[in-house]
């Protein structure tokens, strides 16, 4: 099963499209990262794919069914959405928040049952928060809240999970933890679409990447093909340098202020890789 956008356009203000003619497929079980500058339409595209914002033109297809012809319940059984962190007004317990992920599987008048609780507790365990069920959600740290929302997405038992900047506002350890967790979902057959502002995160965790710019797809494909300093310069209008560590770890960092650290890299013997990468960024500059 594939979730696909076919030539979709969207405008908040008539005449100023945020997306125009975007086509993108998410295949079953894959991890796709979506990058692009602020205002490039990432969140809008995520919402269109999630059934939350009907495109003005084009179609979103779940398999071969028009997503916007499904009922909210049917759609939510296939597609989950993990928002950026928020604080609900009421101090629900962690378990209560995760149980809300069961909503599309419940009748309108039925509260969650024992089986739903088991699924919710399993989801909490999967994100490493087993002992947190009874804690008030509103008293968690930002990283823990993010994990709870991801657990809620898991409890939804959808085939596609769309995550809006799951690495934002987290310390490096939690950024890595959350993204590693998300990458691991593909082994469960769960496909994920992740937006991020950090190209290095995409290099680390994504198989495929799509780069949005000005409401259109600039490039898409395997992470290492898309995330080149040249492409990033096209998207963001700034120079990046690709640094490759001794163990093959790769990072994309802004080119400004790099020379000194790049030279230390060169001294360590990875100079050929990094200089090749930065020379790649030069023609665009």
């Amino acid at each position: 099963m594939t979730l696909s956008a076919r030539g979709i356009s969207y405008a908040y203000v008539p005449g100023k499209p945020v997306l125009h003619g975007v086509s993108l497929e998410i295949d079953a079980g894959e991890t796709l990262f979506l990058l692009g500058p602020n205002g490039s339409g990432k969140t809008t595209l995520l919402e269109c794919l999630g059934g939350l914002r009907r495109p003005r033109e084009g179609h979103v297809l779940l398999g071969d069914v028009d997503l916007y012809k499904l009922s909210p319940r049917e759609r939510a059984r296939s597609i989950g959405y993990v928002p950026q962190v928020h604080r609900p007004v009421f101090g629900y317990s962690v378990l209560e928040v995760v149980l809300m992920g069961r909503t599309p599987h419940l009748g309108t008048f039925s509260p969650p049952g024992r089986e739903d609780r088991r699924i919710a507790l399993d989801a909490l365990e999967a994100v490493g928060l087993s002992g947190y069920a009874g804690r008030p959600y509103t008293e968690l740290s930002g990283g823990e809240m993010r994990l709870v929302l991801i657990a809620r997405g898991l409890a939804q038992e959808a085939r596609f999970l769309l995550l809006d900047e799951p690495d934002a506002h987290l310390d490096p350890k939690h950024q890595h933890g959350v993204l590693s967790l998300v990458r691991g979902f593909s082994s469960r057959g769960l496909a994920t679409l992740v937006t991020t502002h950090n190209p290095t995160h995409a290099l680390l965790h994504a198989r495929r990447v799509a780069l949005l710019q000005g409401g259109s797809i600039l490039a898409r494909g395997p992470a290492e093909d898309v995330l080149t300093p040249g492409r990033l310069y096209e998207a963001y209008g700034m120079e990046f340098v690709l640094l490759v560590g001794e163990d093959g770890h790769r990072a994309l960092v802004p080119a400004q202020g790099i020379p000194s650290s790049a030279s230390t890299d060169r001294e360590r013997g990875t100079g050929s890789a990094s200089s090749r990468a930065s020379s790649e960024s030069l023609p665009a500059a």
Binding site: E47, P83, H86, Y92, P104
Partner: peptide, 27 residues
């Protein structure tokens, strides 16, 4: 009383409620 559990979902952000499969406006 019948809708009481769903009120939890409605008390979230509108978009989240919709993403969880609730026809938020109607409910």
């Amino acid at each position: 009383l019948l809708l009481r559990w769903r009120l939890n979902v409605l008390s979230l952000d509108e978009r989240e409620a919709v993403a969880l499969g609730v026809n938020a406006t109607r409910l």
